[in-house]
Design a binder for these strands. Sequence first.
RNA 1: GGGGUCUUAGCUCAGCUGGUUUAGAGCACUACCUUGACAGGGUAGGGGUCGAGGGUUCGAAUCCCUCAGAUCCCA
Length: 896
Amino acid sequence: MNPINPSPKYNPAEVEDKWYAYWLEKGFFHAQHNSGKEPFCIVIPPPNVTGVLHMGHMLNNTIQDILVRKARMQGKEACWVPGTDHASIATEARVVGMLRERGIKKSDLSRDEFLKYAWEWKEKYGGIILEQLKKLGASCDWERTNFTMDPDYYKAVIRVFVDLYKKGYIYRGLRMINWDCEAKTALSNEEVLYKEDGERSILYSVRYRINGSDDEWVTIATQRPETILGDVAIAVNPTDERYKKLVGKKVLVPFIHREIPIITDDYVDKAFGTGCLKVTPAHDVNDYEIGLRHLLPVIDTINDDGTLNEKCELPKFVGKDRFAVRKEIVKDLREAGHLIKEEEFITRIGRSERTNSVVEPKLSLQWFVKMKEISNTALKAVENDEIKLHPAKFKNTYRHWMENVRDWCISRQLWWGHRIPAYYFGPGENDFVVAETPVVALTLASQKAGRPLVETDLRQDADVLDTWASSWLWPMQVFDGFDNENFDSVRGKIIRTKNKDLNYFYPTQVLVTAPEILFFWVARMIIAGYEYMDEKPFEDVYLTGIVRDKLGRKMSKSLGNSPDPLDLIARYGADGVRTGMLFSSPAGNDLPFDEKLCEQGRNFANKIWNAFRLVKGWEVAEGTIPVENEIAIQWFDSRFHQSLEELNDHFTKFRLSDALLTVYKLVWDDFCAWYLEIIKPEYRKPIDGETYRKTIHHFENILKLLHPFMPFITEELWHEFYERKEKDCIVVASWPEEKGYDTSVLNHAALSFNVVSEIRNLRNLKGLSPKESLTLYLKAAETILDKSFIAVIQKLSNIHEVLFTKNSIDQAATFLVGTTEFFVPLAGKTDAVKERETILKELEYLQGFLVSVEKKLSNEKFVNSAPPNVIEMERKKKEDAEVKIKSLEENLKGLP
RNA sequence: GGGGUCUUAGCUCAGCUGGUUUAGAGCACUACCUUGACAGGGUAGGGGUCGAGGGUUCGAAUCCCUCAGAUCCCA
């Protein structure tokens, strides 16, 4: 062996950082609008600015990197735009937590003071995640890094709010929201958590006296007796015979004797509780809707902090917490004879993700985006495949959501985020203006108020915008789409031709993201894209699965079941982890993560490494090329192009696991197990120059196909074969062109390899050493295989002589490949009993098979109605089976 | 409660508009081999009545219905 041959184990740690730095230094990841090439752009789903890399990011970003690297090699101007999201709720919660640890309460700080802390926090931890992505090999254009609260981005978000307001899409309205009484903030639905098995609660049956009667009662069931002071009606199902005669009568709310009607509503479930529902519009979503239907008043008895207010009409409860009041009022109800029954039951209780306090449904003035009209085009775009979802099954989900889209509540009671540009100048409901700057607001407000106002007369809305109300602009604003020069504020459109980057890169090609944010983010980006660019933001959406642990749980920090990605990279190499994740992640399916996959990835890298060591270790001597090498080179060329075609096809269909598997098999099976074994010179013998050069050429081609998946090892090996020029790197090498392949060579090779397998199998069965040379007979015409393939068979299965025969050979082991019979004479080594067993077993299978085929063919209906090619195929099957059976039977006769 | 998706070998999945063998792959498993690129290797093998039950059809893993289970989204 050549003395320069390095370690039999590939060491990723030694090469990864080196190459990443080199790629950056040469600027390979930077893309420009004037390259003259076809653009290929992906915008990253921006991770939370203060987040750290988890397994979901690993999968998601590996996929993006694979797509970007392949496009770059295909000669496209590949641009992967990175960045981070300010993630208002998550980040604010972390800052609040950090301050709490330092003994500082948010409520003691002014808005500006709090934001100062928040920015400090962001500066300290922001962007860690982007550094981690570099370890993975992510080939992002770092010069284009964006943050959703960068000054320009901030402006864009505000500009869009103002624009949508002007267009009439934004309005202010009452809405039942999820309220966190502890954090005193509204929560989005996804921030409300429910315990999996529900929680224990008590269902109280409370009776209300019918007005005007002495002892006539209606009994309702409730879990929240403290809200009865806000009751405005009792509802029953209209089909409920039990209560028909009571409808229209009035009852009295206990203690406060408010007179409320008994009404009917379909919502009421006859079977639940008593079948009578108390209606409290201020404190329950469904009750609120019933209230709307029946024009009932709303009596809000609970304050922002969860205490009761004076509207409950009972001074003893005012200022007391809702749960304390529940206890007291239950006691009072019991004593007053109103409480009929208490029973435990399991129910779903919503709790705040942040504070774990029970979520209070609360009516509140919020800002909304009207969604129906603005989302029409976005619905159609996916319907008619203008934007393709992968896998397509998500089209149904998307359609259903878009057809039933609800208005989007975009205000959040937080400080970290884009502050809503609404300015109030008076006490009236409409005493406000919406403007991009306080200066403009002042002018507008003065006009609206009809009197000159000064700056101090204006009060800006305290709330910030939902995070998605900034990230939905991502594909446009990462290219500064909303800058002054590009944005036509009269029409409310981006003038794309004024912005070269945007004009060139938009629409982007692929978006890679998780299905759970299909609506929150993907759909809204589509909506915004059509609204401002009159064009989709991306061509294809690849939806990844959720990375789960072995127990099927989502990997999360709180569960502590997620391995540390950087630790995995340290142990298996970035290439190993990348391929490991991809081995088992078909689009749209969850990925049950197992470290064994990374191990498999690492083993693959090692296999490639050792193939390199083998080739690199050969001494080269010019001389004639052996026939088997010649055919092997030819065969591998065909096999390579066949795989390339398959690989490209998988890529266009976004079947990346399959794509990886195609390359994996090409490398492991075809290149290492067959090709290298055929051309491998005898121990310590040199290889001929022609074979050596062609082999390196094949190797280089293989490395190219591997590069998107395994960027580091391929770059390392790329430079091991030759001294290369400064910018001759595989990261920018050209992706191989498809060309035809010789199917006849492929077929002959397949036949030869089958024969080799059969002989190896034979050796296994007979306990013959691979070193023992054998003779092979073919009962076939000599034209069946040409000499070079016979040489291949001889070399790979240690056959010293191949002979053609017209008759069966006695005292020989036999096998079939296709319909051709092969014999290996084994005088004295055959075991007639075993032989018979083997043949009988195969005969049994073939006869069973034949019966099933014959059954089909003898079915008149089948012969009459099946298409001719199908019938022809069945006939062929039958013939083949018969030929095989015949020859097996003959062999059986030949046995002693 | 409404809607979606899924159920194929021990595990993870292919199987596209029904018909190329009596269902494939990777991993795992079993046996054997191995001083000569790689034991993180090689060769071979075992393993599934395609969730259950109906139906359509000459023919169903594939289309339709019912049921069961898993999972996600919306309320």
